[in-house]
Design a protein around this nucleic acid. Structure first.
Lengths: 122, 122
DNA sequence: CGAGTTTAGGAACGGTCAGTCAAGAACGAT
DNA sequence: ATCGTTCTTGACTGACCGTTCCTAAACTCG
Protein backbone atom coordinates (compact mmCIF):
# COMPACT_ATOMS: atom_id res chain seq x y z
CA UNK A 1 0.00 0.00 0.00
CA UNK A 2 0.94 3.68 -0.11
CA UNK A 3 2.07 5.77 -3.05
CA UNK A 4 4.27 3.81 -5.48
CA UNK A 5 7.86 4.83 -6.12
CA UNK A 6 8.54 6.92 -9.17
CA UNK A 7 12.12 5.64 -9.58
CA UNK A 8 13.95 2.35 -9.94
CA UNK A 9 16.18 1.75 -6.94
CA UNK A 10 18.44 -0.47 -9.02
CA UNK A 11 19.02 2.24 -11.60
CA UNK A 12 19.72 4.77 -8.89
CA UNK A 13 22.44 2.60 -7.37
CA UNK A 14 23.91 1.96 -10.81
CA UNK A 15 24.12 5.69 -11.48
CA UNK A 16 25.65 6.23 -8.05
CA UNK A 17 28.35 3.69 -8.90
CA UNK A 18 29.22 5.70 -12.00
CA UNK A 19 29.45 8.94 -10.01
CA UNK A 20 31.50 7.51 -7.14
CA UNK A 21 33.83 5.75 -9.57
CA UNK A 22 34.64 9.04 -11.22
CA UNK A 23 35.18 11.47 -8.36
CA UNK A 24 36.19 11.46 -4.73
CA UNK A 25 33.48 10.82 -2.17
CA UNK A 26 33.68 14.32 -0.73
CA UNK A 27 33.47 15.96 -4.11
CA UNK A 28 30.26 14.17 -5.04
CA UNK A 29 27.60 16.25 -3.35
CA UNK A 30 24.09 15.16 -2.49
CA UNK A 31 22.95 17.77 -5.01
CA UNK A 32 25.04 15.99 -7.67
CA UNK A 33 23.42 12.70 -6.79
CA UNK A 34 19.96 14.23 -6.83
CA UNK A 35 20.49 15.75 -10.26
CA UNK A 36 22.23 12.83 -11.95
CA UNK A 37 20.03 10.20 -10.40
CA UNK A 38 16.73 11.96 -10.96
CA UNK A 39 15.63 11.11 -7.44
CA UNK A 40 14.46 13.68 -5.00
CA UNK A 41 16.63 14.47 -2.02
CA UNK A 42 14.08 13.25 0.46
CA UNK A 43 13.42 9.96 -1.31
CA UNK A 44 17.13 9.36 -1.35
CA UNK A 45 17.29 9.79 2.42
CA UNK A 46 14.19 7.65 2.92
CA UNK A 47 15.72 4.78 0.98
CA UNK A 48 19.42 4.97 1.81
CA UNK A 49 19.44 6.86 5.09
CA UNK A 50 22.40 9.07 4.27
CA UNK A 51 24.94 9.92 1.61
CA UNK A 52 27.20 7.30 3.17
CA UNK A 53 24.37 4.75 3.00
CA UNK A 54 24.02 5.31 -0.72
CA UNK A 55 27.79 5.12 -1.12
CA UNK A 56 27.92 1.77 0.68
CA UNK A 57 25.09 0.48 -1.52
CA UNK A 58 27.06 1.64 -4.56
CA UNK A 59 30.16 -0.17 -3.31
CA UNK A 60 28.24 -3.42 -2.74
CA UNK A 61 26.79 -3.13 -6.22
CA UNK A 62 30.07 -2.19 -7.91
CA UNK A 63 31.94 -5.00 -6.18
CA UNK A 64 29.34 -7.72 -6.62
CA UNK A 65 30.42 -8.84 -10.07
CA UNK A 66 33.15 -11.09 -11.42
CA UNK A 67 35.02 -8.04 -12.65
CA UNK A 68 34.43 -5.25 -10.14
CA UNK A 69 34.58 -1.58 -11.06
CA UNK A 70 38.29 -0.87 -10.62
CA UNK A 71 37.95 2.91 -10.48
CA UNK A 72 35.36 2.63 -7.74
CA UNK A 73 37.66 0.20 -5.97
CA UNK A 74 40.74 2.41 -6.29
CA UNK A 75 38.97 5.44 -4.87
CA UNK A 76 37.52 3.37 -2.04
CA UNK A 77 40.92 1.88 -1.18
CA UNK A 78 42.88 5.10 -1.27
CA UNK A 79 40.41 7.54 0.09
CA UNK A 80 37.62 5.95 2.13
CA UNK A 81 38.92 2.66 3.50
CA UNK A 82 41.46 4.40 5.77
CA UNK A 83 38.70 6.43 7.45
CA UNK A 84 35.67 4.11 7.24
CA UNK A 85 35.89 0.61 8.65
CA UNK A 86 32.83 -0.63 6.76
CA UNK A 87 34.36 0.49 3.48
CA UNK A 88 37.62 -1.19 4.49
CA UNK A 89 35.76 -4.46 5.08
CA UNK A 90 34.00 -4.34 1.69
CA UNK A 91 37.35 -3.61 0.06
CA UNK A 92 38.98 -6.55 1.83
CA UNK A 93 36.26 -8.85 0.53
CA UNK A 94 36.58 -7.80 -3.07
CA UNK A 95 40.38 -7.96 -2.87
CA UNK A 96 40.18 -11.49 -1.56
CA UNK A 97 37.84 -12.44 -4.40
CA UNK A 98 40.19 -10.83 -6.90
CA UNK A 99 43.18 -12.69 -5.51
CA UNK A 100 41.28 -15.93 -5.88
CA UNK A 101 40.03 -15.26 -9.39
CA UNK A 102 43.43 -14.02 -10.58
CA UNK A 103 45.32 -16.77 -8.83
CA UNK A 104 47.66 -14.65 -6.68
CA UNK A 105 47.89 -11.45 -4.63
CA UNK A 106 50.77 -10.37 -6.87
CA UNK A 107 48.55 -10.44 -9.93
CA UNK A 108 45.97 -8.33 -8.12
CA UNK A 109 48.58 -5.76 -7.12
CA UNK A 110 49.78 -5.50 -10.69
CA UNK A 111 46.23 -5.19 -11.99
CA UNK A 112 45.50 -2.36 -9.55
CA UNK A 113 48.82 -0.66 -10.22
CA UNK A 114 48.20 -0.73 -13.95
CA UNK A 115 44.67 0.65 -13.61
CA UNK A 116 46.04 3.32 -11.29
CA UNK A 117 48.54 4.47 -13.88
CA UNK A 118 45.91 4.47 -16.59
CA UNK A 119 43.60 6.58 -14.46
CA UNK A 120 46.27 9.19 -13.75
CA UNK A 121 47.31 9.39 -17.41
CA UNK A 122 44.95 11.54 -19.45
CA UNK B 1 62.45 45.00 5.44
CA UNK B 2 58.99 44.63 6.98
CA UNK B 3 57.88 42.40 9.83
CA UNK B 4 59.76 39.08 9.85
CA UNK B 5 57.91 35.79 9.36
CA UNK B 6 57.04 33.86 12.46
CA UNK B 7 57.02 30.48 10.67
CA UNK B 8 59.35 28.33 8.59
CA UNK B 9 57.98 27.92 5.08
CA UNK B 10 59.85 24.64 4.70
CA UNK B 11 58.28 23.18 7.83
CA UNK B 12 54.86 24.32 6.71
CA UNK B 13 55.17 22.48 3.39
CA UNK B 14 56.49 19.41 5.18
CA UNK B 15 53.45 19.38 7.47
CA UNK B 16 51.17 19.91 4.48
CA UNK B 17 52.69 16.84 2.83
CA UNK B 18 51.80 14.79 5.90
CA UNK B 19 48.22 16.04 5.88
CA UNK B 20 47.63 15.59 2.15
CA UNK B 21 49.21 12.14 2.26
CA UNK B 22 46.72 11.06 4.89
CA UNK B 23 43.40 12.39 3.65
CA UNK B 24 41.68 13.35 0.45
CA UNK B 25 42.24 16.89 -0.82
CA UNK B 26 38.63 17.91 -0.27
CA UNK B 27 38.57 16.59 3.26
CA UNK B 28 41.60 18.61 4.31
CA UNK B 29 40.14 22.01 5.07
CA UNK B 30 42.00 25.28 5.23
CA UNK B 31 41.12 25.29 8.92
CA UNK B 32 42.89 21.94 9.27
CA UNK B 33 45.96 23.34 7.55
CA UNK B 34 45.92 26.47 9.68
CA UNK B 35 45.70 24.47 12.91
CA UNK B 36 48.18 21.71 12.09
CA UNK B 37 50.67 23.99 10.40
CA UNK B 38 50.58 26.75 12.98
CA UNK B 39 50.40 29.36 10.27
CA UNK B 40 47.76 32.00 10.17
CA UNK B 41 45.15 31.82 7.44
CA UNK B 42 46.23 35.08 5.94
CA UNK B 43 49.93 34.21 5.85
CA UNK B 44 49.07 30.97 4.11
CA UNK B 45 47.29 32.86 1.36
CA UNK B 46 50.05 35.45 1.14
CA UNK B 47 52.68 32.76 0.61
CA UNK B 48 50.87 30.07 -1.39
CA UNK B 49 48.03 31.98 -2.99
CA UNK B 50 45.37 29.36 -2.38
CA UNK B 51 44.70 25.97 -0.88
CA UNK B 52 45.53 24.47 -4.27
CA UNK B 53 48.81 26.45 -4.34
CA UNK B 54 49.84 24.92 -1.04
CA UNK B 55 48.78 21.49 -2.28
CA UNK B 56 50.92 21.83 -5.39
CA UNK B 57 53.86 22.94 -3.23
CA UNK B 58 53.29 19.88 -1.05
CA UNK B 59 53.26 17.64 -4.12
CA UNK B 60 56.51 19.10 -5.43
CA UNK B 61 58.09 18.62 -2.04
CA UNK B 62 56.74 15.10 -1.52
CA UNK B 63 57.84 14.00 -4.98
CA UNK B 64 61.27 15.63 -5.01
CA UNK B 65 63.13 12.80 -3.31
CA UNK B 66 64.57 9.49 -4.44
CA UNK B 67 61.76 7.68 -2.67
CA UNK B 68 58.66 9.84 -3.00
CA UNK B 69 55.79 9.72 -0.49
CA UNK B 70 53.69 6.91 -1.91
CA UNK B 71 50.52 7.78 -0.01
CA UNK B 72 50.67 11.33 -1.28
CA UNK B 73 51.25 9.94 -4.76
CA UNK B 74 48.38 7.46 -4.60
CA UNK B 75 45.90 10.10 -3.50
CA UNK B 76 47.13 12.49 -6.17
CA UNK B 77 46.86 9.83 -8.88
CA UNK B 78 43.44 8.55 -7.98
CA UNK B 79 41.73 11.68 -6.87
CA UNK B 80 43.33 14.87 -8.17
CA UNK B 81 45.16 14.02 -11.39
CA UNK B 82 41.91 13.25 -13.25
CA UNK B 83 40.55 16.72 -12.48
CA UNK B 84 43.70 18.88 -12.30
CA UNK B 85 46.10 18.95 -15.23
CA UNK B 86 48.96 20.41 -13.21
CA UNK B 87 48.67 17.60 -10.70
CA UNK B 88 48.57 15.11 -13.56
CA UNK B 89 51.81 16.55 -14.93
CA UNK B 90 53.60 16.33 -11.57
CA UNK B 91 52.36 12.76 -11.23
CA UNK B 92 53.63 11.85 -14.68
CA UNK B 93 57.07 13.20 -13.79
CA UNK B 94 57.41 11.24 -10.58
CA UNK B 95 56.10 8.08 -12.27
CA UNK B 96 58.70 8.44 -14.98
CA UNK B 97 61.41 8.85 -12.36
CA UNK B 98 60.13 5.81 -10.50
CA UNK B 99 60.14 3.72 -13.67
CA UNK B 100 63.71 4.72 -14.28
CA UNK B 101 64.91 4.08 -10.74
CA UNK B 102 63.08 0.76 -10.47
CA UNK B 103 64.11 -0.35 -13.94
CA UNK B 104 60.65 -0.96 -15.45
CA UNK B 105 57.08 0.30 -15.52
CA UNK B 106 55.98 -3.12 -14.35
CA UNK B 107 57.97 -2.79 -11.14
CA UNK B 108 56.41 0.61 -10.51
CA UNK B 109 52.91 -0.77 -11.01
CA UNK B 110 53.60 -3.56 -8.55
CA UNK B 111 55.09 -1.14 -6.04
CA UNK B 112 52.02 1.07 -6.26
CA UNK B 113 49.61 -1.86 -6.13
CA UNK B 114 51.31 -3.21 -3.02
CA UNK B 115 51.27 0.17 -1.27
CA UNK B 116 47.63 0.51 -2.24
CA UNK B 117 46.74 -2.77 -0.58
CA UNK B 118 48.71 -1.87 2.52
CA UNK B 119 46.92 1.44 2.78
CA UNK B 120 43.48 -0.13 2.52
CA UNK B 121 44.33 -2.82 5.09
CA UNK B 122 44.07 -1.56 8.67
C1' DC C 1 61.81 59.63 16.02
C1' DG C 2 58.90 59.00 11.87
C1' DA C 3 57.77 56.84 7.06
C1' DG C 4 57.36 52.77 4.51
C1' DT C 5 56.80 47.92 4.12
C1' DT C 6 55.68 43.27 5.33
C1' DT C 7 53.45 39.99 8.32
C1' DA C 8 49.94 38.63 12.17
C1' DG C 9 45.45 38.41 13.72
C1' DG C 10 40.60 38.04 13.80
C1' DA C 11 36.34 38.94 11.96
C1' DA C 12 33.56 38.64 8.12
C1' DC C 13 32.06 37.23 3.22
C1' DG C 14 28.94 34.65 0.01
C1' DG C 15 28.39 29.98 -1.28
C1' DT C 16 27.69 25.21 -0.58
C1' DC C 17 27.43 21.24 2.39
C1' DA C 18 24.59 17.12 4.41
C1' DG C 19 20.48 16.60 6.36
C1' DT C 20 15.35 17.90 7.92
C1' DC C 21 10.54 19.56 7.89
C1' DA C 22 5.83 20.07 6.81
C1' DA C 23 2.41 19.65 3.45
C1' DG C 24 0.33 17.29 -0.25
C1' DA C 25 -0.33 13.48 -3.69
C1' DA C 26 -1.13 8.63 -4.96
C1' DC C 27 -2.04 4.34 -3.75
C1' DG C 28 -4.68 -0.19 -1.11
C1' DA C 29 -8.05 -1.37 2.16
C1' DT C 30 -12.46 -0.77 4.39
C1' DA D 1 -15.70 8.13 0.29
C1' DT D 2 -12.58 8.10 3.92
C1' DC D 3 -8.63 6.34 6.37
C1' DG D 4 -3.73 4.85 6.95
C1' DT D 5 0.38 4.50 4.67
C1' DT D 6 4.01 5.59 1.57
C1' DC D 7 6.27 8.60 -1.59
C1' DT D 8 7.04 13.42 -3.62
C1' DT D 9 8.13 18.17 -3.37
C1' DG D 10 10.36 22.44 -2.31
C1' DA D 11 11.75 25.29 1.22
C1' DC D 12 14.63 25.46 5.01
C1' DT D 13 18.51 24.75 8.64
C1' DG D 14 22.91 25.31 10.96
C1' DA D 15 27.53 24.25 9.98
C1' DC D 16 31.42 24.61 7.33
C1' DC D 17 33.83 25.77 2.92
C1' DG D 18 37.70 28.74 0.63
C1' DT D 19 38.69 33.37 0.42
C1' DT D 20 39.02 38.44 1.56
C1' DC D 21 39.23 42.72 4.41
C1' DC D 22 40.95 45.64 7.78
C1' DT D 23 43.64 46.93 11.58
C1' DA D 24 47.59 46.32 14.44
C1' DA D 25 52.30 44.83 15.15
C1' DA D 26 57.22 44.34 13.95
C1' DC D 27 60.75 45.28 11.25
C1' DT D 28 64.39 48.59 7.98
C1' DC D 29 65.79 52.80 6.40
C1' DG D 30 66.46 57.82 6.71
Amino acid sequence: MGRPRAFDENEVVRAAVALFAGRAYDSVSVDDLVHHLGVHRNSLYKVFGSKRGLYLAALRRGFATSDPDLDLLLLAMVERAPVDAEVAALVQNVLHDLDRSLGSPGATSTLLGDRLRARATP
